[in-house]
Design a binder for these strands. Structure first.
Length: 553
DNA sequence: GGGGTGTGCGCG
DNA sequence: AAAGCGCGCACACCCC
């Protein structure tokens, strides 16, 4: 059963649509009464169909109402809009409309505020009709796409729940770490003492008394004046150079990064009441990965400060990450049994060595990454032919994806998320280069652009399918955590607290840690089954039950 | 002072 | 200075 949620000027309508598509009579509830209505319907496990999970779910959670399943019309439209694998009717032929909107920020209702107040009643009243859009999407959906839309929508629920619960964060531990590394918190605009000390060392070593090491251009100039043959101030190039200025400069850069990305200002603006609230954007990346928004930088949380993530007293963090997820995904979508078998022992790279494709684990890893990213030169490019001999199906699949991209054709993930096609200037460059009398420079440029797009489509099928697996994994985790915690509120029972592409952190009472460990592994297996049925690919996890995130890995 | 671009670096 | 994918952000620096 689907329940279509539609915002009216001062109320909400709920319209049932049964599995045959028959539309029932709408119920109108007041905005204040919506939470109770949802709670009452939940016993029957309907799928809530609404314009945007961010518009509804934060307030429901704030009112203590959990939703089991939903269909996020905006996210699903974005997938269907682009797909070439649609059913009877393709939204890609529709003109752009309000359903193609950019993601909205998820904002929980402030404490005590009335539920579901719209600032702009006009906007609410003139919103496009969710029922019509839902029917359109149903008509455009194949069974595979239906799986993707369900996974995407489950992800939307997870993202809001994580933001609601937050990641436990001990500000005093973070502060101690900053003070130990940088010195005491400086006044606004001042450098911390450790950075100032290193800046002085750099200036002396380069004989550049006024140098501001924050300026890449000025630093490069000073380095060259000191006789150093470098073309940038990036750390990997500097680390090749032997000069007394280099060590303090690299250390300065390390501290400057910590200070500006995750320093005291970050702490002030992103941690409150012992929690960091990640702001995820499901589907924010073309491949289907999530992105994050705002200075919190949820998907860039450096390892350096993860020790500040500490479970509440009597609770544990269960940190699980999927080992070598992308190569395993590649083995599955290519139905490469040899590669899947190489991963069966638990370490795919060791397995690749074992079948004799390459001689060391490091080689296996660098060759595998090269295959998925499209390396052509260096060690990685050199090892590729050997990998291709051992795993012709897997390598063939990424090669085909690259060729499609080079032609300007789209590619699709396992469940049917389709890559964008290159913009018109890309096509212009290609036709210009193939015309009579095209200059060598124009041909080079076009070839470069074609290969670059080929690397994108090559990676798209793997990264995008891995993102689908991760969504399915989290959907299973979410539902099993709920079964474990019963009807107690989200934050008082085991819950997802963080997500990082192929890794999750669950915050759970210590007595549930073992059960969570088990259900996270079961969920990985279930996600593999859901996507790849009986194909014998495995998705082993590294799971750590810890008090602080810094202890994991 | 706002906006756009380049550099550099964090994450997977 | 990237070989080899996908992101977001801070800062410098330039323009208006």
């Amino acid at each position: 059963m689907h329940l279509i949620v539609s915002a009216l000027v001062d109320a909400v309508s709920i319209t049932p649509v049964d599995d045959s598509g028959a539309i029932g009579g709408a119920t109108i509830v007041s905005r204040a009464g919506f939470g109770d209505a949802v709670r009452a319907h939940e016993a029957a496990r309907p799928r809530w169909v609404w314009d945007d999970t961010n518009n509804w779910y934060p307030a429901l959670l704030a009112a203590g109402v959990r939703v089991d399943r939903c269909h996020d019309l905006r996210l699903c439209r974005a997938i269907l809009r682009n797909t070439h694998a649609s059913g009877a009717f393709s939204p890609s032929e529709l003109p752009l409309d309000a359903w193609d909107a950019a993601p909205q920020e998820a904002v929980a209702a402030p404490a005590g505020a009335a539920l579901f107040e719209f600032d702009d009643h006009e906007a609410a009243a003139s919103a496009p009709d969710p029922l019509t859009e839902f029917q359109r999407q149903q008509a455009a959906t194949t069974p595979r796409l239906a799986l993707l839309l369900a996974a995407e929508s489950a992800g939307a629920l997870v993202a809001v729940e994580i933001r609601h619960a937050g990641l436990p964060w001990r500000a005093e531990i973070h502060n101690d770490l900053l003070t130990r590394t940088l010195g005491p918190r400086p006044r606004l605009g001042d450098r911390p003492v450790e950075m100032e000390r290193l800046a002085r060392e750099v200036r002396e070593a380069l004989d550049a008394p006024d140098l501001n090491p924050d300026s890449a251009a000025a630093t490069l100039k000073a380095l060259r004046r000191a006789g150093l043959m470098v073309n940038s101030t990036s750390k990997w190039e500097l680390s090749e150079v032997n000069h007394p200025a280099i060590a303090p400069l690299l250390e300065y850069k390390r501290l400057a990064r910590l200070m500006s990305a995750n320093g005291w200002h970050w702490l002030d603006t992103n941690v409150r009441d012992g929690r960091f609230y990640p702001d995820y954007v499901p589907g924010g990346v073309v491949t289907g990965r999530w992105s994050s928004r705002g200075g919190g930088g949820a998907l860039q949380l450096p390892r350096q400060i993860r020790a500040a993530v500490v479970a509440d007293p009597g609770w544990k963090l269960i940190v699980a990450d999927a080992s070598q997820l992308e190569p395993r995904i590649l083995a599955a979508i290519a139905a490469d049994r040899a590669m899947a078998a190489a991963g069966a022992s638990g370490d795919l790279y060791a397995g690749i060595v074992q079948v004799g494709a390459v001689t060391t684990r490091d080689e296996a890893k660098v060759a595998m990454l090269g295959a998925m990213y499209g390396a052509t030169t260096g060690e990685s490019g050199r090892l590729l032919p050997r990998l291709a001999r051992a795993f012709p199906r897997a390598l063939g699949l990424v090669e085909d994806a690259a060729r499609s991209g080079e032609r300007g054709d789209p590619v699709a993930t396992w469940l049917g998320r389709t890559s964008p096609v290159p913009a018109s200037d890309w096509h212009d460059a290609q036709s210009l280069a193939s015309a009579d009398g095209a200059s060598a420079a124009a041909q080079d440029r076009a070839r470069g652009a074609a290969r670059s797009w080929g690397r994108f489509t090559r990676n798209f099928v793997v990264q995008g399918t891995a993102a689908e697996w991760a969504l399915a994994w989290m959907a299973f985790i979410r539902s099993r955590l709920h079964a474990l915690g019963g009807e107690s509120p989200l934050m008082e029972s085991p819950h997802l607290a963080f997500f990082l592409h192929d890794e999750v952190v669950i915050h759970a009472p210590a007595e549930h840690a073992a059960a969570v460990d088990a259900l996270v592994r079961d969920s990985a297996e279930a996600a593999g089954q859901l996507l790849f049925a009986d194909f014998p690919v495995t998705f082993p996890l590294t799971v750590a039950v810890v008090d602080n995130y810094g202890e994991a890995k």
